[in-house]
């Protein structure tokens, strides 16, 4: 069995340590004897957009985000939509999450269209949400660090990833955090997210492997260190939000 990871715009959308998500997916596959390969996809026409089983799309600076938004408005956006339609999964954080939505509405000027893969819209906000973020969901708890001024609102096709326990999440109003739509996930959890939240990493691995393999059954890993990190981060978040 093998896993193919496409890292979207690693040169432009890789700040705040989001690379840890790619490390987590690769290592958790390798520890189970599954070969993992990571390939970068950046600005300019992609070769083999049909290759990845799972895409990772992280957060970036404003400058990077402009370039990436323009790139996704062209043929690469179409490739990404096709890839999702053919069963690939996406995990996106912060800027990547916003760019997968239907549109981004700046404080002044016209709305900027997104890739249209997640039914969410984001509006510019004045106050930046910076701090620890603890989320509860039916599938398990999540913890990370948020750092964004965009306010994201979900449309009917997306469901929240979870509800906010500490922090602001999607918009600071409705207590939701993140979005899931099919095999596409967006959220505001830096940290990195997946190493400390192994159930979510394994969910994505399962989805990714199912694209080209049948009867995928992930072996159980020893997650003691992962859960210890999650517990410590959650305690810190509750003491110092």
């Amino acid at each position: 069995m093998d896993l193919r990871i496409g890292h979207l715009y690693p040169d432009l959308m890789s700040i705040y340590g989001d690379k840890g998500n790619v490390i987590a997916l690769s290592q958790r596959a390798r520890w189970r004897g599954i070969a993992a390969e990571v390939r970068p996809y950046s600005v300019g026409e992609w070769r083999e957009p049909e290759w990845p089983d799972v895409w990772f799309f992280g957060g970036g600076q404003d400058q990077g985000q402009d370039l990436v938004g323009a790139d996704l408005a062209g043929r690469n956006g179409e490739s990404l939509r096709k890839s999702v339609a053919s069963g690939a999964a996406i995990f996106s954080v912060c800027g990547g999450y916003q760019l997968l939505g239907t549109e981004y509405v700046p404080e002044v000027g016209a709305a900027i269209p997104g890739a249209g893969i997640l039914d969410v819209t984001t509006r510019a906000g004045r106050k930046r949400f910076v701090g620890n973020l603890v989320v509860d969901s039916a599938d398990g708890p999540l913890v990370g660090f948020e750092n964004h001024s965009g306010r994201t609102y979900l449309g009917p096709k997306a469901v929240p990833l979870g509800s906010v326990v500490v922090g602001n999440g999607n918009n600071g109003e409705d207590k939701t955090e993140g979005a899931i739509q099919g095999k596409v996930i967006g959220c505001y959890l830096h940290g990195s997210c997946l190493p400390k939240n192994p159930w979510l990493a394994d969910r994505l691995l399962q989805w990714a492997l199912e694209r080209r393999h049948t009867d995928v059954k992930l072996a159980k890993l020893d997650d003691e260190a992962e859960l210890a990190a999650r517990t410590q981060a959650t305690e810190v978040a509750q003491a110092r939000p």
Partner: peptide, 28 residues
């Protein structure tokens, strides 16, 4: 935000390390 440790090149450091004792508020 401790996310930055995931950008640092621990992959180069780890194979050379003889032993590591870890501490701190976010030691985990």
């Amino acid at each position: 935000d401790v996310s930055w440790i995931w950008d640092a090149d621990f992959e180069t450091l780890a194979p050379a390390v003889e032993h590591a004792v870890i501490t701190g508020l976010r030691g985990r």
